[in-house]
């Protein structure tokens, strides 16, 4: 069990970039017409977003908006990490490509993390670990998360088409060396025997296709996510770190409801964006968090789970105010 704790970590801003193009599951032609309503009720997903643009373009817009939102300059960013599994050209890393396009400082640490639904928490943990080691007055990082998952779907796949959606998110994070109070705790776990729950294969036309085994994702989520969260909160051992809200990766309603039921959570403490945006992979946590940011300034629990099989939860103390915006392109 890899539980880590970090002091002085502060989220300074979040920008979500969501494609404007909307797909409606009630109009999805590959699903029989009399099954569509049931599909929407059971998955909790009516609308999904699809991007014709590569993921790099979405990240680029997100970075530009995040710099404006925080007032940071190009010389302020010490770390740039991209969490994605849908970059068109993976050499060089997308982080390096974005570094070049935005002319960040030469001293910036840049790399990609290959992670999906647990990726936001993985990225936060990686940045929290790195920032405290940087010799700077106010070490700062940009965490870019998200995918254009619809680019990897087979047009006739009734398992993936109704679920996956495109979006990205950019989170600005700062380390305060003078704040020695714990502001972030993480519990990252891997269940590699679940590697075929979500996976990529090449089809007959040599095109990359993502496959989803919904029953196994359900089984692994229900079996491993509640215990991961319980262990993290027990590790905190402080009543004042009790999360005000629980922000889960937006997988689908069947899975999320089962996890919430196992933890016996009050549904009012669990924001949900499935109906509007579908499953946006590693962008789903920050997108969903932003729906409650204006009314939350305390501890929040973030939990991502999926492809890997990977489970990652974070207990984060939010600052009093986190500027945020969600834009459509």
């Amino acid at each position: 069990m890899a539980i880590t704790k970090h002091s002085g970590i502060k989220i300074k801003g979040i920008v979500n970039v969501i494609p404007a193009l909307n797909e409606d599951n009630l109009q999805l032609p590959i699903i029989e017409e009399n099954e569509r309503q049931k599909l929407v009720e059971q998955t909790g997903i009516r609308f999904r977003r699809t991007s014709k643009l590569p993921v790099k373009n979405l990240f680029s817009r997100g970075i530009k908006e995040a710099m404006q939102l925080t007032g940071w300059t190009n010389n302020d960013v010490d770390i740039l990490i991209c969490v994605t599994q849908t970059t068109e050209l993976s050499i060089p890393s997308l982080a390096c490509q974005l570094h070049g396009d935005h002319e960040f400082n030469q001293q910036t640490i840049c790399y990609d993390i290959n992670a999906g639904c647990s990726g936001y928490v993985y990225g936060l943990q990686t940045i929290s670990s790195l920032l405290s080691t940087i010799n700077s007055k106010k070490p700062r990082a940009l965490l870019c998360c998200g995918d254009v998952s619809t680019h990897l779907l087979s047009p006739d796949d009734t398992s993936t088409q109704p679920i996956f959606s495109d979006a990205i998110s950019v989170t600005a994070i700062e380390f305060d060396p003078n704040d020695d109070s714990i502001t972030a705790r993480f519990n990252l776990e891997t269940i590699g025997k679940g590697q075929t729950a979500i996976y990529m294969e090449m089809n007959a036309l040599n095109k990359k296709i993502m496959r989803l085994n919904g029953i196994d994702v359900f089984a692994y989520s229900v079996k491993y996510v509640p215990s991961n969260i319980e262990a993290l909160i027990e590790n905190a051992q402080k009543p004042d770190e009790l999360p005000e809200i629980y922000v889960f990766h937006q997988a689908n309603k069947l899975i999320n409801d089962a996890v919430i039921r196992k933890l016996n959570l009050n549904i009012d403490c669990v924001p949900n964006t499935l109906n509007l945006y579908g499953n946006t992979a590693s962008a789903s946590i920050p997108i969903t968090l932003c729906t409650r940011l204006s009314e939350t300034n305390n501890w929040v629990l973030l939990s991502g789970f999926g492809v890997g099989f990977s489970v990652a939860s974070a207990l984060i103390k939010l600052p009093d105010f986190v500027p945020h915006k969600t834009i459509e392109i």
Partner: peptide
Amino acid sequence: WSSLNALIYISRINEETNVLITSGDL
């Protein structure tokens, strides 16, 4: 029986009994 209805069925079994059934089992 379809991928969606199988998932709903398996999730309902879990809701009622706490038993987990995987695709490997099926």
